[in-house]
């Protein structure tokens, strides 16, 4: 459990420093307009992963079987 806690702390630090990464980001070089929004990539990445996990979870309700299913 200790390693898990440490990793979550490290991630917390990373997540907190991400706004500073924007000092390297050039908003003039965007293409679609949607990537112009501050926080588009972090929020989109987070929501995408949450969505995928939820879909996988829903999927598992029907298609997940015991691993001796075919034996």
């Amino acid at each position: 459990m200790k390693t898990r806690k440490n990793i979550i702390y490290i991630l917390f630090v990373f997540v907190n420093i991400t706004p500073y990464l924007y000092s390297f980001y050039d908003f003039k070089k965007i293409h679609f307009g949607i990537d112009n929004i501050i926080g588009f990539y972090p929020i989109y990445g987070f929501l995408a992963c949450m969505g995928l996990i939820i879909i996988a979870k829903a999927f598992s309700l029907i298609f997940k079987k015991d691993d001796t299913y075919y034996d």
Binding site: L11, V15, Y25, D26, K29, D35, G45
Partner: peptide
Amino acid sequence: GNHVVSQLHLLLFSALAFF
């Protein structure tokens, strides 16, 4: 700059979602 920043943002927040 844009590419590195956007990729890091995307990946770090995916990691957050995982944990």
